[in-house]
């Protein structure tokens, strides 16, 4: 069989351990989709695959056991899903245009979750639209609150929802519900003073626990939605690490701009001599230094006065080294 593996991988088909067999990977931005597409996924799995489907770690579907000869046929069946989910595509009917930038993952957000500070799947789709298709290996995930159920901190870009608690002392009875919730479940940013609440904005992570705990609507949500942008988390063999805070109290537009700017940074600095011509963003920043990255990332970005940026970001993480036993 003569097959350009680079081409099929870019087309979101995998080279599997079984010779001649591939797997189709279906991206679902935000992991949220109309149920009707499940029927199409079932059809592909039963007609061309081995009848099974894997839910991927990034909230897509992977249909295994597909004969490589059937890639074109599968792409035809994928078309309604690609269109239904409004995925940007260069050649209709030919499947996915690229696979480098991974599915944008998101928690269920405020579609369902009472804790979520925003519609994380909606924002995920907005980002998908702004960055896909692209060959660069970017991992982006969005989570509704600092509980970080989606594990946004293990991504190149993690977006964590924030709300700025609005306090109306006239509605506060001093029950201490918010103070207790913040102390026991979050960052202990509240204290009762003269039976009213003082909030330490430096400590506050905008999780919204105070709003949820308040029985009188003394604490309510800010009209504006805010986000904490954490960057360059990663898994992998070299130096896995959690993403660190770049900007807190950021706005949606600035985040999208920073992500797009990062593609320009990677284009400028990527080491094409790296294995497979791929070098992961975080390692590029390790090489160039954060200042160089920041120069690219903030190009044309106008942060709101509320936003707080870390001028320098330092990462740690795991450095594999066995202890030496004598």
């Amino acid at each position: 069989m003569d097959l350009n593996t680079k081409k099929i991988k870019k087309n979101a088909f995998r080279v599997t351990k079984v010779r001649g067999q591939t797997a189709s990977r279906i991206r679902v931005p935000g992991g949220y989709l109309p149920a009707e597409h499940l029927a199409a996924i079932q059809e592909i799995a039963e007609q061309y695959g081995n009848g099974s489907v894997h839910l991927t770690t990034r909230q897509g579907f992977e249909i295994p056991g597909i004969d490589m000869k059937n890639i074109d046929a599968v792409n035809k069946l994928l078309q309604p899903i690609i269109e239904g989910l409004k995925i940007n595509q260069h050649d209709p009917g030919k499947g996915y245009t690229s696979a480098g930038t991974r599915n944008i993952a998101a928690c269920i957000g405020n579609n369902v979750c009472p804790y979520a500070n925003y519609n994380s799947t909606g924002f995920a789709k907005r980002i998908e639209n702004a960055v896909f298709p692209h060959d660069f290996h970017f991992k982006i995930a969005l989570t509704g609150c600092p509980n970080d159920c989606i594990k946004a901190r293990m991504n190149d870009f993690g977006i964590i929802g924030m709300t700025e608690p609005q306090y109306d002392a006239g509605r506060c009875v001093g029950c201490g519900g918010c103070e207790k919730a913040c102390r026991l479940k979050s960052v202990d940013a509240l204290e009762l003073d003269h039976y009213k609440i003082k909030r330490d904005h430096v400590k506050c992570v905008g999780c919204g626990e105070c709003v949820l705990a308040c029985p009188t609507r003394a604490f309510t949500r800010s009209r504006e939605k805010y986000y904490r942008l954490v960057i360059m988390g990663r898994t992998g063999k070299k130096n896995p690490r959690l993403a660190e805070d770049f900007i807190a109290w950021a706005d949606e537009d600035s985040i999208i701009k920073i992500i797009k700017n990062t593609y320009a940074f990677v284009k400028e600095h990527i080491n094409l001599g790296a294995p497979g011509g791929k070098e992961h963003i975080g390692y590029i920043i390790d090489r160039t230094g954060f200042e160089e990255y920041k120069k690219f990332a903030l190009e044309g970005v106008v942060l709101s006065p509320k936003a707080v940026m870390n001028q320098n970001v330092y990462w740690s993480g795991v450095h594999y080294k066995l202890p030496s036993y004598k």
């Binding site: 405020n110 979750c113 009472p114 804790y115 979520a116 500070n117 925003y118 519609n119 929802g161 709300t163 919204g208 709003v211 949820l212 308040c214 609507r217 309510t220 949500r221 009209r223 939605k225």
Partner: peptide
């Protein structure tokens, strides 16, 4: 009251 609910994007009557 727009956005006055405990959870985000929830309007309630007060």
């Amino acid at each position: 009251l727009a956005g006055w609910g405990t959870s985000s994007d929830v309007d309630i009557v007060g």
